[in-house]
Design a protein around this nucleic acid. Sequence first.
DNA 1: GGGCGCTGTCATCTG
DNA 2: CTCAGATGACAGCGC
Length: 618
Amino acid sequence: MHHMKKYFTEGLIQFTILLSLIGVRVDVDSYLNGYFSPLVIEADGGPSSAFIQTPLHQYRDTADGYLVHPKCPEFDSHHVWSRRLLEEVRSLGSPARFHTHLSAWLVQLEPGDQPSSDHGEPDQLADNVLHEADHNNSEACLSQTEEAIKDEEEEISLNPLNQLTHSSNLEQGGLFSSSALPPPLSGLELHSGWQDLLSDFDDFDSLVPQHMPDLDVDLQNPISYNASLQDAMVTGGGDYRPDPPRGESQATSHQSTSLFRLESTNSSHSDSPPEAASALPMPLFSLSANSSHNETSHSAVGGYLDEAVFEQINLLGLDGLGSMDPQMLNRIEDSIESLWLEDFDSDSGLSLESSSRSPASTSSTSSSSSDSFCEDEGGATGYSSEVESVFTKGGACASACYDWTPVNLNENIWHDHTYSLQMPEDHTPQSWSPPLKGIKQEMLSEDECEPEELSRDGRRLQALGLPFSASQIVNMPVEDFLELLEGRGLSMSEVTLLRDVRRRGKNKLAAQNCRKRKLDAILGLQGEVDALTARRNALLRERSQTTKALSAAAESFEALSQDVLSQLRDEYGQPLSPQQYTIHFGANGRIVVRPRTHTARSTTTGGKTVKRKKDKKP
DNA sequence: GGGCGCTGTCATCTG
DNA sequence: CTCAGATGACAGCGC
């Protein structure tokens, strides 16, 4: 029975702790005001007040690695600490994985008892139970409380809670060395309130796992959005997209890795049929399209980039020729000479179709993107040129005999890429590269795109008899372009035309990139909206369930308080009526039993004090 | 024929 | 100052 008393009292302590952990008012004052309006709140019972010392602030005082003096203002705001503790508990992971060990004791001071020497054992702890039983402000220590109830030990084993329990034990031992363990009382029956309390907490314990998985699902499962628009514009190399979630990135990485191996072993990025080559980027993107914006994974992006870089390396290299399809290779070899001339003749103008139709671009760009480049020029057509109607392809073919030796741009093809979607294909070597490679890739691209008509700028260039295409002018380095302008004795009109062609071509690419960025931004924002919406819904569900749990805990608390009061005795040995007394959890960790009729006593006292001071002053 | 989307182009700003 | 890129605005084209 001695132990049961202690358990019962400690149960109040633990119950308060538990309330703080679940977000229920650790600041019991307003909580009691809100839920139990009849309860009396008293800030300080004073030396004669009946109270129960509770060590709720022990953990707080030492949580930060230093002791906080009880006079410290922080000392009184244990609810702040409790919230911090709760946050720490939550930070450990899903509460669904927690087990909370809830032990409830009722401990009462027995004047004759000896202090407990072993504070590590919960059943040897002692609490002071002082009752403010005097309605006339004459409190008497109720040392004859007889009952203790040990209800149950709920095996929920929450570590911080256990720490708290131990800390409370230590504080009890330190602060109340004189307290003694009361002898356990026999004959006490477990009040139904305890059962309700425990059952409610069972419900609460089940509530959290019930809704937390939902939260986990909501938080971990990324918000997917229709990425068809993005799908139409994302390319493989140096892609720019929102960071995919880690989970998907792993899957993506796995699958894309297999795909990459398939192609790398064949060494056929530039040699394989376009269908096979184009098979890589689309699965890559399709897997990454359902990207979430909740979480980012740089590693996942890095995986994409790594593969894209590796892919581009394969594209740039010619090592794949060794494993090239012999039939295709024969076709290329038979056509080298003619294509060497057609390379300039087949200029498609600013649209840069040749590059986009190469296997390299095919393997790194989406179909929609390449389609836009394959088609003839569109858009504004108001531009008129006095020369574009004069020359035809034949003229350009004749002009191809110019002694024009394009510089090797392999070392310059990756310059000034600000947006990655378009640049890899626009700056691929074939558009401005040594003849052999460019011709081979041009040859490969012929299978999938018919020779296109010249753009306006291309026709203008042909009209001027310049032996290069608009794409070459656009993609050549500025040094080479200046050399071209200055070293060939071009007229002012020709120089102007070349500058305009280059400017328009650059701007066209810039416009394309800009539009893609805009679309990506829209998609990204949409994804964020979806993710935030899901997060909001999850939080609303959590709040609802927490509110339910709080209500259940409040009801249990009320029942428990009544039960505790019914077990206590006043100075005359009479049981305390729950209608006349209330249990108050003070901010300083004390549990005080106060009569309900003495509402706002502290304020009244304060007012009296002020009155006295005012009266003394005159 | 009008709406809409795509694209090219121009003008302008910025680094 | 020049250059390259970014971007809003406009216009043409095709569906």
